[in-house]
């Protein structure tokens, strides 16, 4: 098993800031790790904790949630609401053993292409170090086998 582990990471981002920041990383031709898949939403306010669970169910080894910095939300307050939910949901995941290293949160503005690229690299590296999310994968595997009753 010398092959390096390529983690699968799903990012949920708002279209006005982080998605635009990712576009800027592209137009600036910054290079970063290809492990992240982006799901675009209008606002961080739209990012439901259920999405995180579904990404994990789909085999994601890591999840990133990102949007506009406080005060910059296109919808004025969506990210303030989101921040509260994240705070609570993060504690819940942590307590149930879904490590906070695997579910990360960030603010990336439309001007922060560099921050986006750097984060893609660091998050990929961090999760590569953690390795596959074996414990969750075992649960997923179980669902693939026929039910016992």
């Amino acid at each position: 098993m010398n092959e390096i582990f390529e983690p699968k990471i799903v990012a949920f981002v708002c279209t006005y800031c982080t998605y635009a920041g990712a576009d800027l990383a592209g137009t600036s031709r910054l290079k970063y790790a290809p492990n992240v898949r982006i799901v675009r939403l209008p606002c961080t306010g739209r990012i439901s904790p259920m999405f995180i669970l579904k990404a994990l169910q789909k085999g994601a080894d890591g999840v990133l949630i990102s949007g506009c910095h406080p005060g910059d939300c296109h919808f004025t307050h969506g990210n303030y609401h989101a921040r509260r939910r994240w705070m609570v949901f993060r504690a819940l995941l942590e307590f149930t053993g879904i490590p906070s290293e695997r579910v990360k949160y960030s603010w990336i503005s439309a001007a922060e292409g560099g921050k986006f690229a750097d984060l893609m690299n660091s998050i990929t590296e961090d999760i590569r170090k953690l390795g596959p999310f074996d414990q969750y994968n075992a649960l997923i595997k179980e669902t693939e086998a026929p039910a016992t009753f």
Partner: peptide, 11 residues
Amino acid sequence: FKKDDSETFIL
């Protein structure tokens, strides 16, 4: 929400 809710965990 409060505008100054804690956010130490956000990158």
